[in-house]
């Protein structure tokens, strides 16, 4: 038990530092695309510390206080149900007690908890952001579920560890074995990471009409910290599911950075969809590829 708790703390630290590093790169990278020098690599850490150091934070009662707590708890709980490494006792969290379906639902608990705080703050624009987020979620979840369902039924298990274990050689990586599922999942991946073209909910210019409008100080600090951790959880999940998993932290970082780079490129290249355009798009191209893959699978059986 102590080992698991120690591992959980390790996981939090690892994702936090990975996330801050990656997003530091993200800011520099974006600045270079804009022909700027950009901030230093650790600018995100500085920003985060600054938020925690604020002398006071505006609030709207106890529910407002609990929102960021639920959000962070949801992120960390999701993290603990993702196995980080394969063939290792380290960084497994509580993943043996859960599975992929549980994880997909756990990942929504935090945002919904935070939505309560947004609601109680009384900012109508914040609530608008929440509705946008939930609407966008329809578009993201449907193709994503289809792609992971292909994986789960293909490997005959819903356990993330077992799906990861089954990919023992490069040709057995699920991105090779189930290319259609991988492609479909990438659309949802970009959306779930909050990159353009699916970033209408948390985009910088949309902040005033986004869920974070009313948060400041320590609350925003928690939200910012959990955001980068949450992104890392998603990266690691994709590494586990499609990229063969990782046997040690360095391979994990290499693979997840490859995915992160893809996210960065897509985000830098594409203009932003409106919410309904995003959902319509997701329910067309990715869904059609996914349905095609299902049909091909059952045709060949």
């Amino acid at each position: 038990m102590l080992f698991t708790i120690f591992n959980s703390l390790l996981a939090v630290l690892l994702t936090y530092s990975m996330g801050m590093l990656y997003y530091g790169f993200y800011r520099i990278g974006n600045a270079r695309i804009h022909r700027r020098v950009g901030p230093p690599l650790w600018q995100n850490v500085i920003d985060n510390i600054k938020l925690f150091a604020k002398r006071e934070a505006p609030g709207h009662g106890i529910m407002f206080h609990l929102g960021p707590v639920i959000m962070t708890a949801g992120t960390i709980t999701s993290m603990l149900f993702v196995p980080f490494l394969k063939d290792s006792a380290w960084l497994q969290g509580f993943s043996s007690y859960g599975n992929l379906i549980l994880l997909i639902y756990l990942m929504v608990v935090g945002p919904l908890g935070n939505a309560l705080a947004v609601g109680v703050s009384g900012v109508p624009f914040g609530v608008m952001g929440v509705t946008r987020g939930l609407t966008r979620l329809i578009g993201l979840e449907v193709p994503f579920f289809l792609s992971v369902a292909l994986l789960m039924s293909g490997s005959g298990t819903i356990s993330i560890s077992e799906i990861m274990m089954a990919q023992d050689s490069f040709s057995n990586w699920n991105m090779m074995a189930h290319p259609a599922a991988f492609i479909v999942s990438l659309f949802s991946f970009v959306g779930m990471m909050g990159a353009s073209p699916f970033d209408v909910v948390g985009a910088p210019v949309e902040v005033y009409s986004g869920p974070q409008a009313e948060f400041g100080g320590k609350y925003l600090g928690f939200l910012a910290a959990q955001r980068v951790m949450f992104s890392m959880v998603k990266l690691i999940l994709w590494v586990d599911l499609f990229l063969g998993g990782a046997t040690n932290v360095f391979i994990l970082m290499a693979k997840s950075f490859a995915l992160f780079f893809f996210y960065f490129i897509v985000g830098a290249a594409f203009p932003r969809f409106k919410t309904e355009q995003a959902v319509d798009f997701m329910l067309k191209l990715p869904l059609i590829i996914g349905i095609g893959a299902v049909l091909v699978r059952f045709w060949s059986l």
Binding site: G98, N99, L100, T157
Partner: peptide, 21 residues
Amino acid sequence: SGSVSGFMVMNVFGGVFAVIL
């Protein structure tokens, strides 16, 4: 094809929630 432990999910979530609070 797999199992899920409601007991653990509730406890982990509750524990993490308490720590963060």
